[in-house]
């Protein structure tokens, strides 16, 4: 029971990272209704991007973050136009498998470029930490949490208060009306998709100095991301944030209190996923499942 303060800190910080991880997925599904099975690879490429920039020019990942996000967004928009737009009206099978295939290609391009060994970026703040009595707060994760807060805040602000953002919300809520009103649907879709990739890239940048990165990290992240999105409710960004923290708490609690907990913690995501799908498919905040 004396674990509780530390548990809360660990769970909150983990939740911040998870939030960053899924916010992109939630955005792209909410707007384009395409589940991006290549999202994990966007994260992975963001991590490798930060690593390469740090290696080649010594620039800190946090400084490289904005640039990488812009690149990610442009890449996402291009990808959308080229590969995803054609299947917007296709059966789900096609969409799922298409993005799956794209993810596979990206993963192996990374393998070819960077080889399969593990890497990590070494920065001074990544190793810093603060001690409050018995509770220890790792600096790297705190920064990750901070970035997550900033980006999520920016996203919400954008959705509420800018022209583009409002148009995106309109698409989300009332597709046909939006078209009638003259909103350029295709452009919005591409932009939303691009933003979702940018958010994925941001996650990768943070992960690059918190832990180890490898070309295969994407799949893992993807599955977790799904668990969270389904838990929170497909298409709801608020739901995604809630889901992220809930899962983080569940996993951390299992790690601490269940014997061999860290071994079972990964399974929590799947158990949650399965339970939610069975008991309440719409998730906490999500829309009805009729699709």
């Amino acid at each position: 029971m004396h674990y509780i303060p530390q548990l809360i800190v660990d769970a909150l910080l983990l939740g911040g990272i998870y939030t960053l991880m899924v916010i992109g997925l939630a955005l792209s599904f909410g707007v384009t209704r395409v589940i991006n099975f290549a999202h994990g690879e966007a994260v992975m490429l963001g991590a490798y991007g930060a690593y390469t920039i740090a290696l080649v020019s010594g620039i800190d990942p946090l400084l490289a973050l904005p640039l990488l996000m812009v690149i990610g967004c442009l890449f996402g928009m291009a990808l959308f136009k080229v590969a995803i737009e054609p299947v917007l009206k296709a059966p789900h099978v096609n969409q799922i498998l298409l993005t799956f295939g794209i993810g596979l290609v990206l993963q192996n391009v990374a393998v070819m470029i960077w080889k399969a060994d593990e890497r990590s970026v070494v920065t001074p703040y990544a190793y810093s930490s603060f001690q409050f009595g018995e509770v220890f707060v790792p600096g790297g994760r705190l920064i990750g949490f901070g970035v997550a807060v900033v980006l999520v805040g920016a996203l919400f602000f954008w959705l509420r208060h800018t022209e583009f953002g409002r148009a995106t919300r309109a698409l989300d809520e009332q597709r046909d009306a939006a078209v009638l009103v003259g909103i350029n649907v295709k452009r919005m879709y591409a932009l939303a998709f691009g933003l979702s990739v940018a958010l994925g890239v941001a996650t990768g940048v943070i992960l690059s100095f918190i832990g180890a990165i490898s070309p295969f990290m994407g799949f893992h992240i993807l599955v977790k991301g799904f668990a969270i999105i389904v838990l929170g409710g497909l298409g709801s960004i608020v739901g995604a944030v809630l889901g992220a923290f809930l899962l983080a708490f569940a996993e951390t609690a299992v790690s601490y209190y269940v014997p061999n907990g860290t071994g079972w913690a990964e399974a929590v995501a799947f158990a949650v996923l399965f339970l939610v799908l069975v008991l309440r498919p719409r998730g906490i905040v999500g829309q009805a499942v009729a699709d």
Binding site: L97, L98, G101, Q107, N108
Partner: peptide, 22 residues
């Protein structure tokens, strides 16, 4: 000798098939 090529080929096959050869 080149790692990742066969897996990448699979990915390309998926993508190409979905887009052009459904």
């Amino acid at each position: 000798n080149m790692e990742g090529v066969s897996q990448m080929t699979f990915g390309l096959v998926l993508v190409v098939c979905i887009l052009f050869l459904p």
